[in-house]
Amino acid sequence: MEEFRKKIRRRAHISAALCLLAPAILIALQIITKRPMDYASGVVYGAFGSLMVVAVFNVARLFSALGDEEKLKKMYIAETDERNIALGKETGSTTLEISVSGLAFAAIAASFFSTTVSLTFAAAVFFIGLVAAAVRTYYNKKM
């Protein structure tokens, strides 16, 4: 449990650092680029904003668990429960299969309308395949 407490403390500190860094990076980007608000800026603001919201939520959740033994134990059980871990693995592999099939189908369907869109879907399928192969190789060596 002491190891888990250290892990949670580390996570809480990382989340707290993100809470401070995210707005600082946004402000710095705005000052450096002096870019007018357009779609790209919106995407960046949206991404950093969401990151900040998640980080704030995590800081509250993690520090609250660190101060309460019962909450910490519940968190430990939820994170190490083997059925939850098995569910995560099963969900991940099924999601990957469905997503890749969907993207491949979309690439074929889009080829009738737009080469660019079709190639984008095909590139996404290729990239996912590449990542899956790399991850499999990594775990193949690890286990």
């Binding site: 939820a78 429960d81 083997e82 059925r83």
Partner: peptide
């Protein structure tokens, strides 16, 4: 579940 450090659902 508490004794085995798993959830009740398990």
């Amino acid at each position: 579940a508490d004794a085995l450090s798993v959830t009740r659902q398990t």
